[in-house]
Design a binder for these strands. Structure first.
Lengths: 192, 192
DNA sequence: CGCGTAATTGAAAAGTATCAACACTGGTGG
DNA sequence: CCACCAGTGTTGATACTTTTCAATTACGCG
């Protein structure tokens, strides 16, 4: 459930320490703060050094859908930079977050001067497509109980970090349905 | 609903005509044939010259979910090539399809020798992530009627190409539900 | 014509949302 | 110390939506 991408962080942390690293800045976000805002332009990419964020889409009918939780090593904002579009989701810090950030112009310069970054990003993006597509398919094709079990396995370690509402928004269901599904998992035999 | 990517096709058709184009082959698929098979390795990328394909995930519970319909100019198989993974879906020709294809080794050589291809692919992938994520969010957050209307607008032109089952699989619902939703759209006031 | 596939429809069962009430927690100010 | 409040979590009852199952019709094609 939480995405991790070791290669990218290694690249940027090396870069940050080198003479060419002047374009790599660091920034810190407190719990609950937004790193990227839905509907706004994005002026730099972020790479998470540590912490956990949620990528959350606010639909115009008032519902929130959590695209994904991102953690250490993941890149944010690259979609908007590459296609010059506004962001389609909010990215909010669930824990305190430390991140590198690089503005658009410097980021393109890095792509020019570091060939290996191109392939790292191609791989990262290919992974994002794959994961997003697989999750969409599974959530559409399976009942709540199945998706919930998968989610609980992945989130077991950090269970305290995620509110029930977050879990419901991730599964695309209401809080009430989440609670019922959980109690049914715990042996209550689903009265008919 | 149908994805199109003009830049990529222009790049490969130019390349195909040039002296460096020996690595770009062409292939033709009849309606109903599979271009990529779920669970199998992918040995080359495809760029659609013309025709329409559906990218369909076969879940282990027997349900099929259509990820997307791809048309002219879209690239296929790049996810699997970049991350060296087996394919997570079948890609099936809905109409007759003509496509360029380039094997993995040659594809990487092109990436080395044509810097501009890197950025074209980064943009293409960023777009795929975005579209996939937005669709997942919308389908999870809205009732069938809403999603159906959006779908019908996009597919109106080629309505005859898509079976009802395809439309249902795209929406992640059963054929029965699709039929009810359609008749309710056409004025039948949803008997209670 | 006859067969197989696609499309349609009804009725019952299963799943999910909505609404509303209530419990638990931590912090704030009187 | 306690009353109060806001946020989070829990639970029940009911209404609504979607699936499942089954039966029937429509259509293309050898």
């Amino acid at each position: 459930m939480i995405r991790i991408n070791q290669e990218l962080l290694t690249f940027f942390s090396k870069l940050s320490g080198s003479s060419a690293g002047s374009s790599v800045m660091e920034k810190r976000f407190a719990t609950g703060n937004n790193i990227i805002n839905q509907g706004k332009h994005v002026t730099s990419v972020f790479i998470i050094k540590n912490g956990i964020v949620k990528c959350i889409v606010n639909e115009e009918n008032g519902r929130d859908f959590i695209q994904e939780f991102f953690s250490q090593d993941e890149i944010l904002g690259e979609l908007e930079i590459f296609n010059n579009t506004i962001s389609f989701c909010n990215v909010e810090a669930i824990t305190e977050v430390e991140a590198y950030h690089i503005n658009k112009k410097d980021f393109y310069a890095l792509l020019e001067n570091h060939r290996e970054l191109n392939i790292l990003l191609l791989r990262a993006l290919a992974n994002k497509v794959r994961d997003t597509a697989i999750r969409a398919s599974q959530q559409q094709s399976h009942p709540i109980a199945y998706n919930l079990q998968k989610l609980l396995v992945f989130s077991a370690d950090q269970a305290r970090l995620f509110s029930k509402q977050d879990l419901a928004n991730y599964l695309g269901i209401t809080l009430r349905s989440l609670n019922r599904a959980i109690s049914e998992l715990n042996g209550v035999p689903k009265e008919s």
